[in-house]
Amino acid sequence: MIRAEQLTLSYRDGQRRLPVLKGISIHINRGEWVALTGANGCGKSSLIRTFNGLKIPTGGSLSAAGLDLRSPGNRTAVKQHIQLVFQNPEAQTIGSTPFEDIAFGLENRGLSREAMLAQIEKVLHQVGLTHKAEADVATLSGGERQRLAVACCLALETEMIIFDEVTSMLDPAGRRDILELARKLWEQGTTVLWVTQRMEELAESPRVAVMSQGKILYDGDTRTLFYSSGLPDALGWPSAPAVRIGQLLQAKGWPLHSLPLTEKDLEAVL
């Protein structure tokens, strides 16, 4: 789905060029769930915006959904295959109601009114907003706004959704709802790139890529990251309670594959 090789990106600041991405190589297969993490300013947002053509790499190679993003025409075409849900839920609605917001993205596809209505009804049901179809978007909660943004992606029959720290502005219930929705879509075949700085969300991901200063420091399975890589301590990450207990078990000789990452894992161990 995504194939980046030695990807670079820099911005011009007067006479200087400031490097943002420094030789990024990452492959994401169709149907994968990958979490991307790193401190603010590490290059996460710049990287994901190259994946759907919002930013143009300075060097290296990048293909997305089989399209070479060095071609200007492909940067527009790739947006149907790869959609981005932004951090701020208030910054991504255009219509005055959920119905209008979803319809906006469908109007340029040449669908008949009957097909468009059916698609809107389908995606509203998928994200649990059928009862809010004609509500003023200003009355929606932050979590409902994020689900509406997901519905707009689904309406375009996207193959991959990039969630850019979408839970950072939500309360615990809203965070859990959007994470469960993303997981359900993943189980149905959607490729998911989940960008987060929350340790509990990383712990639930089968694969994690860690960025720092424009480079990828780690890309692999989650247990190895938390228990063997040394990166969480080196980067000053707080340990989740389940991982702290797992570290005690690791010191007692427990094998890596049985160490807990989540509260559910910990319940099974206990």
Rank of each mutant, 00 (worst) to 15 (best):
V150W: 05
E100P: 12
D219L: 14
T158L: 10
L67R: 11
N74H: 14
S141N: 01
L9D: 05
P206G: 06
E144W: 06
E90A: 14
P255K: 08
G110F: 07
L259S: 08
Q126F: 04
G59T: 04
L256W: 07
R207K: 13
E263T: 10
D101K: 08
D171C: 10
V34A: 07
L111I: 11
G23M: 02
S228R: 13
L84R: 07
G43C: 00
Q188N: 13
E32P: 11
L84P: 09
P98S: 09
P241M: 05
K264R: 15
G105R: 06
L54C: 03
R145D: 05
A251V: 07
R147Y: 02
V208Q: 00
E100R: 15
E201Y: 02
L270M: 13
L21G: 01
T222R: 05
L170Y: 06
L21E: 01
G105D: 08
E159H: 06
L179V: 07
L266R: 00
K55V: 12
K55D: 12
A65M: 04
M169W: 01
L36Q: 02
A91D: 13
L248G: 06
P232Q: 04
I28E: 03
R223F: 03
E159D: 15
E201T: 04
A251R: 13
G41N: 06
L185Q: 14
L140G: 11
I216W: 02
T222C: 10
G236R: 06
I162A: 02
T76K: 13
K184E: 15
S71K: 13
S96F: 07
L117E: 15
R109E: 12
L54T: 00
T130V: 12
Q92E: 10
P98I: 09
T158D: 10
V85N: 03
H131G: 08
G230T: 11
F51Q: 02
E121C: 11
I216H: 03
P255Y: 07
D68K: 03
V123H: 07
Q119K: 14
P232W: 00
D177K: 08
S61D: 11
Q250V: 04
S25Y: 00
H131K: 12
L270F: 12
I94S: 10
G230S: 11
